[in-house]
Write a protein that binds this DNA or RNA. Structure first.
Lengths: 353, 353
DNA sequence: ATTAAGCGATAAATCGATTTTTCGCGGTTG
DNA sequence: CAACCGCGAAAAATCGATTTATCGCTTAAT
């Protein structure tokens, strides 16, 4: 009867043992591939497993083993393409090694980040891949250190003295963006950033400025940083333009800033690249299908994930040594949103919404 | 010593029992809030918990309990805003009820979907929220039925005879889109869809067609369906336009179709809404900042998540009765990409790439 | 001939909790 | 005075696996 089958208790290792006429320990050994079992019994066990449709309960199994085959992943949000594909990659890599990935989102809150980490510690995960909300010095990293958890920090981090770190080489990328813009003749550039990630933003900014000034010392670089949220950035930007500032190019250091810039351009009826050029850090699928296509720095998501998992599993397997800091190269895609200043009429051709 | 503390074994319930001078059973009772414990002992237990920094091991705890406080969630992909925020919501709701959410992506593969489900069954999850790759009749739903798992199907589903279902009311939304387009004077409309999700796509299409023809019987509705992938859709669309077909509006039944349509418009130098109008099912953040802003059907992600979790927990708590099929209303946002036909020059004003 | 080693398998201990059973003790009750 | 009750806590069983200790038996070594 299907109905009865559906509601029957799942077979345990003892059920298999009974059915095969051996002990539970033997069943366990067969399933672990321990070679000191008589071939006949191996066969009987496999038959019984097949017959009953038995599968190991991973929780019970992990309870007895020292480490649990679970990897935790914490990201600031699930909604973005970047972290979405990051999780997809991490999941794939964890599964490849026979681990389950448990993902959670800190929703851009450091407090929540700590809570999740505590929960993962409760779960006795083997390791954690943490993309911190702010940087490597947050409370979450402190928590991991305090409780001796093994983990890797990714994305919004520079080097750390306790954990391996992996992130996009946004410094080189920013320098390259600077070069691209200056070579096209831009001498007044606005940079948008989020102050939250102080160190990483500072690094990008410094390298951008350095390269730009090196190539053209007369370049003027304005900076608008929003402390925490994106809305203050919007109004700062609005004020900035209202004051009459007219940079010929904007470089946004984060995706949402690119959106804010675009929508402010719209408000004022400016079009890329004729009225102003735009480059954003972080690429998205829509950027190449809109008109104009938006120039962007493409982060090496896949590489970051691979490197992070590689480092993590090395630590899990007990490798020692000082923490490593990896930087994965970005690709800079100069699309249509970037042109040369003065190549088009600086007029407000668009409608207001 | 911090260093020693970091590497010490985590305290178990027995350590707490020893420290408090009671038995492990008593500790458990105190932590469960069982009232038959002497106040003095309650205090001693709490003190010991505090002193040792003890936290319950959820896996060990769940092993002994009948059900495990884990909810599984399976979505076709993590990369999209829709499923991203769906997972975020589900996570929030599960945590509210003291459950952990374990999310996995089927990567648009039914085989993988089944594997994940089997793994979740191994984990003895209390319930599953499944957004199937194709529809409610896939192998995953069959698996759930066979093993008596409790679950809710969401998104790409209609009613089912075994599980509760929750999805956006895309049928009403499609009718509304039809009305909006017809009222603006469109009489030749192209609909793009993905054949994979046969039933849901058919339902949307039927309701769109019905309403359009009801309002204007002379409306011509062309349909391009791609069986599985999005690339065939692109070439079909290209052929369609190459043949000289010139619909005045396009309604895409899924997000990626909207992107494909946009990029094909670009290739041909057509601009919305002057050359052609565009509405897409499923909204995204960028759609309101680009020029033109893209009209879209906004799915009630939050409502779907809430309803799904509500139904799921009712079933987990043992509620019987026939499966319910919930439809949550969408919002239709008519943005600038939609206009009236003939209101602008039907010319190729844009540059080719 | 006695001990040691090897083999294959089982019984028992273990992981860290919860749940059930048992127990000791003071106080009623017949 | 014995049987009974109830309370609170400890002891033991349990969940489903893995790991260690042990056992019976055969064979090699001393």
């Amino acid at each position: 009867m299907v109905h009865r089958e559906a509601h029957a208790r799942r077979p345990s290792i003892h059920d298999v043992a009974n059915s095969a006429g051996v002990s539970a320990a033997t069943v366990s050994k067969v399933l672990q591939g321990v070679p000191t079992v008589k071939p006949e019994n191996v066969q009987r066990v496999f038959d019984a497993v097949e017959l009953l449709g038995y599968r190991i309960d991973p929780l019970a199994s992990d309870l007895r083993r020292a480490k649990r085959r679970i990897i935790g992943a914490i990201v600031p949000e699930f909604e973005s393409e970047f972290f979405g594909s990051m999780i997809t990659q991490l999941e794939r890599l964890a599964e490849q090694r026979g681990y389950a990935l448990v993902a959670a989102s800190s929703r851009e809150s450091e407090a929540r980040e700590r809570e999740i980490l505590a929960r993962m510690h409760d779960w006795r995960v083997s390791g954690v891949v943490l993309a911190p909300v702010r940087n490597e010095h947050g409370p979450a990293a402190g928590f991991m250190k305090k409780y001796g958890m093994t983990g890797v920090l990714i994305d919004r981090v520079l080097a750390d003295d306790a954990f391996d770190t992996v992130s996009a080489d946004s410094v080189s990328a920013s320098a390259e963006v600077a070069r691209e813009l200056v070579e096209r003749g831009h001498r007044h550039i606005l940079v948008l950033g989020l102050g939250e990630q102080a160190a990483t933003v500072r690094a990008r900014l410094d390298s951008f400025r350095e390269r730009a000034l090196q190539l053209a010392p007369d370049t003027r670089i304005d900076v608008i940083l929003s402390e925490s949220d994106v809305e203050p950035l919007r109004s700062s930007l609005r004020d900035y333009f209202a004051k009459g500032e007219r940079p010929t190019a904007v470089y946004s250091l984060f995706l949402r800033g690119t959106l804010v810039a675009l929508s402010e351009f719209r408000r004022r009826g400016w079009h890329c690249p004729n009225d102003i050029s735009l480059v954003g850090f972080d690429d998205a699928e829509w950027m190449q299908v809109t008109w104009p296509a938006i120039a962007a720095v493409v982060q090496p998501v896949r590489q970051i994930a691979i490197e992070a998992m590689e480092l993590l599993f090395r630590r899990i397997e007990g490798e020692g040594g000082p923490p490593k800091a990896r930087l994965e190269p970005c690709k800079v895609l100069m699309r249509e949103s970037v042109g040369s200043p003065g190549s088009g009429p600086h007029s407000g051709g668009g409608k207001r919404q």
